[in-house]
Design a protein around this nucleic acid. Structure first.
Lengths: 127, 127
DNA sequence: AGGCTGTCTCGACGAATGTCAAATCAAACA
DNA sequence: TGTTTGATTTGACATTCGTCGAGACAGCCT
């Protein structure tokens, strides 16, 4: 029941253009912060950050839970819980194919977060 | 004490080059995740995300607590607590000048986080 | 010095989080 | 059909988090 966040609705579907100007350019309004903060929160745990990376960098763009779990010294339910958190934050999608469940990253959302954090490059010494 | 994180130590001081390849390119190792996750966690609260934005986008690159606090319907101590969190995450610096305390963003850290989340642009329809 | 104003620290409290074991669900296979 | 294997849900627990009020600290200004 639509636990998936509205993150993507903030993204312009016609292009790779992010919805929001960089955080350092305009004050992000409260509503936007309320939508985006959960995504950062989801990445704010070392295990989930690694999970996110393993999924996003996986061959074929997807990773099986059976490959993710043994990479940590944590119980299966715990990994499952973290994956659910990433899912509810809109950062990944899950799909069951036969016995296994595969997770894939949602690049548009990652791009959106990256865009928000983007700042102007540091001045060169020659400037 | 050195409560300031080691975030910057991961950044190449000679350039704007980020320390770490994008999350979607290489698996981020556990140690890196342990260092970076707290920064995302700090941004994972709507109030702190707004604070960060207000500071980073402020005129002159710095914002006074006296300007930040009234923007929220939260107590002074609570805002102070959130600012401390941002400080300990290495995202901002604080400096007292006379009566007021000013906060400034640490662009290198923001850049680092942005770089980590960067993903390849979506394929154009023409590709 | 004394008082005023701005900011932070401390102590407390309810709510949320990370973790696990046990139970449950889903798909494959005998 | 029953069993096995993979993944999630449930319930429990200790810890952390967000918030506040009260108090402490730091600079100004009489």
């Amino acid at each position: 029941m639509s636990k998936q966040t509205d993150l993507l609705h903030l993204t312009d579907p016609t292009a790779g253009a992010p919805c929001c100007p960089p955080l350092a350019q305009r004050r992000v309004p409260a509503e936007t912060a309320a939508v985006l903060a959960p995504a950062f929160k989801a990445l704010g745990d070392p295990v989930r950050l690694q999970l996110m990376s393993m999924i996003a960098s996986a061959e074929g763009g997807e990773a099986c839970v059976c490959d993710l779990t043994p990479a940590f010294s944590l119980s299966g339910p715990t990994i499952s819980h973290h994956l659910k958190t990433l899912r509810e934050a809109g950062l990944v999608d899950a799909e069951r194919r036969g016995t296994w469940v595969y997770y894939r990253a949602r690049p548009a959302v990652l791009r959106q977060l990256a865009a928000l954090l983007t700042v102007a490059p540091p001045p060169t010494s020659g400037d």
